[in-house]
Amino acid sequence: MRISQLTLKINHDFFGGLLLICISGGAWYHAQSYALGTLNRMGPGYLPVALSLILGGLGMMLLIISQFKPAERVTLRVVPMIIILGSLCIFGIMLRSAGLFPAAFTSVILATFADTRITWLGRVTLALVVSLFTGVVFVVGLGMSVPLWWS
């Protein structure tokens, strides 16, 4: 099997806490431009500031806890993630310009590369079946307004 994932020996509490603190910091910083208001009449910034402070606090707690725990193996499946998310992006890019059928066909072909056991015949058959099926169900059946083909 190909090497398609990243296995890191990291402390997931540490990195989890760090991620939470980063998110809360960003949220807190952005909320500075919204009026705070008072408890009686809360402005648009009141809850975002409060929530980002709580999130930051929880992140800190995780960070502290992480100091008492050993590192563990965390697997990040980088290649499958890129393939799956990438093929969905391609679907989005092609949907309006090329039409539903070509978009679905292309992204199914791309998505199948995340699996190592599929053959080319299987790939093409699957892509044909899925794109025909979605076309029939969503455009013909449910009347979704998106072109089937480019014109």
Binding site: L88, C89, L100, A111, T112, I118, L126, F133, T134
Partner: peptide, 25 residues
């Protein structure tokens, strides 16, 4: 392996249909 590509396309078509917008994807 036969299922997930179909699920993926359903996700794409499904979110698109909410507002008819590619941005949702």
């Amino acid at each position: 392996r036969w299922l997930y590509p179909a699920i993926l396309i359903f996700i794409g078509v499904g979110v698109f249909s909410v507002n008819n917008s590619v941005f949702e994807i």
